[in-house]
Design a protein around this nucleic acid. Structure first.
Lengths: 124, 124
DNA sequence: TGACAATATACGTCAAATAGAATATTGGTT
DNA sequence: AACCAATATTCTATTTGACGTATATTGTCA
């Protein structure tokens, strides 16, 4: 993957906010939409942009698309995502996004179950 | 400095190539122009873009503007520039730019003298 | 199957970024 | 002062990106 592509993905604040959220946990579109207070279309478009370049991956579960950071990414990308994580919390938007996310914890706990079920028969 | 600004600077390949060159040594516009085989205007415009956000600094020496990476940059920027440096050599363009630069070494050695003169009276 | 919920895609529009041409600026030289 | 070399700026055309509206897709459930 070309280096410049990474930066082209990261050069939009909405996408940075999305990645910041996904760095916490897998989420479905509606949760992201709610935290960012952006339209469904906008969130969806940014997500598909990120997916196109492999910065996120998507898995459908029933009606919901669960987006997450891929477990395994190219080395350059991994380095940059780590660097991003190191720097991002110094900015208020990102911090408050995480707080908003925490408040919704109950709403998205089921996702953790789906992604890494403790009991493999316990599917929703 | 806002994080997204950093990425907006880095999301253009020409600018990445410029930064890659400047990571080696201070250079004047005409050298960059030659290595990148881009027009004077284009190089100048990208440089002024980078300067606007503090990714490079400029010092005039006679007819020449000497561009260089600032010694001291904000922490987030520094982290990202380091990350960039770690990753950039895996791509052919950047590697060959450095080789082209080496071939011009003789042409730009005077810059090193100007930037950090061994003998302070030895100005061109 | 019909209706609904969650998400995606298509298309048009507007703003911002890029590149090129022409011109301006700055400093040195004669 | 006239001229030249190096670089910057302005103006304009073109491209690209973001966003909104409308619509399509996919899966669930009655």
């Amino acid at each position: 993957m070309k280096l410049v592509r990474i930066y082209q993905c990261l050069c939009d604040e909405t996408r940075l906010r999305i990645l910041n959220l996904l760095a916490q946990r897998p989420l479905c579109v509606c949760h992201i939409q709610e935290v960012l207070a952006r339209s469904q279309v906008q969130v969806s478009q940014h997500l598909s942009r990120l997916k196109k370049d492999g910065l996120v991956e998507a898995n459908r579960h029933q009606n919901w698309m669960i987006y997450s950071l891929p477990k395994k990414v190219p080395q350059a990308l991994e380095a940059h995502l780590r660097c991003l994580q190191d720097c991002i919390q110094t900015e208020p938007v990102f911090k408050s996004d995480l707080q908003a996310l925490k408040k919704m914890k109950a709403d998205c706990d089921w996702i953790d179950e789906v992604v890494s079920p403790k009991n493999s028969t316990a599917q929703v």
